[in-house]
């Protein structure tokens, strides 16, 4: 899609795990790190990291968001890429930190960090030029891309390309694939009826797609859709793209 010049393959990267993965989906974060390491990259996980500030930013609390974001600015001293296993958090840093810090004493630092952020699937595909060797049985999966990943990071094509590398995996398209799953952070708390209608439609479309499971590279969407499926007593589930790729390529026991 975008003809970006092939970046040099780095020896080291920072990994920004995101607050949702940290508390709710740590295995997915670990799987993403394992995949990176398997490609010969040293992965550095700053232990002082917490959150990009997005929950407060989208809730009309930019001041609180800025202070949390500020606390992350000093964690990435080396000029390494910062890999983020979530399109919406990556988009928050890359596209919204510069405006969040506009006119602030830390603006330059924030912009410097933002400029080094790469979404996980993008990094695997376009920086590492990963070649995945599928070792699993034939299966069908659907891919859900978070909206900010799609619109701010253009990562839906990256997710598709990675899944399409797997010889035994058929990627199926689900109805209204580009539509939002209804997560939207506090939106799902404040407007449960609308958010619920959206996630109902999304989970129905995924189940009706003929896929055995779905994958996504965004923790919020994953928790939302899986939470709905579990609530409704369905067996169908989704998993993080990192876990799926690692599993298919023999990286998980």
């Amino acid at each position: 899609m975008h003809a970006t010049p092939a970046p040099a393959r780095p020896g080291d990267v920072y990994f920004f795990g995101t607050c949702l993965l940290d508390l709710f989906l740590p295995e997915a974060g670990l799987d993403a790190m394992t995949l990176l390491e398997r490609e010969g990259v040293r992965v550095h996980f700053p232990q002082a990291q917490s959150c990009c500030g997005q929950p407060a930013f989208t809730s009309g609390q930019p001041g609180e968001a800025r202070e949390v974001a500020r606390s992350q600015l000093g964690l990435f001293d080396q000029p390494w890429p910062i890999v983020v296993p979530s399109g919406s958090c990556g988009g928050m840093i890359k596209h919204h930190w510069p405006t969040l810090f506009a006119g602030d004493a830390d603006e330059a630092r924030a912009c410097a960090v933002a400029g080094r952020v790469v979404e996980f699937a993008d990094f695997l595909l376009n920086v590492l030029r990963i070649e995945l060797r599928d070792q699993g049985k034939p299966t069908k999966v659907a891919v859900h891309t978070s909206c900010s990943a799609r619109r701010e990071m253009n990562t839906h094509v990256h997710g598709w390309a990675l899944v399409d590398q797997l010889a035994q995996v058929e990627r199926v398209v689900h109805d209204h694939e580009s539509e939002c799953c209804g997560f939207g952070g506090v939106f799902s708390l404040r407007h449960p009826d609308i958010s619920g209608a959206m996630v109902s439609d999304k989970s129905a479309a995924l189940q009706d797609s003929g896929a055995v499971e779905f994958v996504t590279a965004d923790g919020g969407c994953l928790l939302n859709i899986n939470g709905k499926l579990a609530h409704d007593g369905k067996a169908f589930r989704g998993k993080h793209l990192a876990s799926f790729l690692l599993e298919r390529t023999g990286g998980k026991a």
Binding site: L21, F24, P26, G29, F45, S188, R190, P192, S195, V199
Partner: peptide, 23 residues
């Protein structure tokens, strides 16, 4: 959990955080 659990199972933290697993 407010509006979340109207349509979803509760959000439950993992047994260990990613920070901890990495350590």
């Amino acid at each position: 959990q407010l509006g979340w659990t109207v349509h979803r199972t509760p959000l439950t933290p993992a047994k260990q955080s990613l920070h901890e697993l990495v350590r």
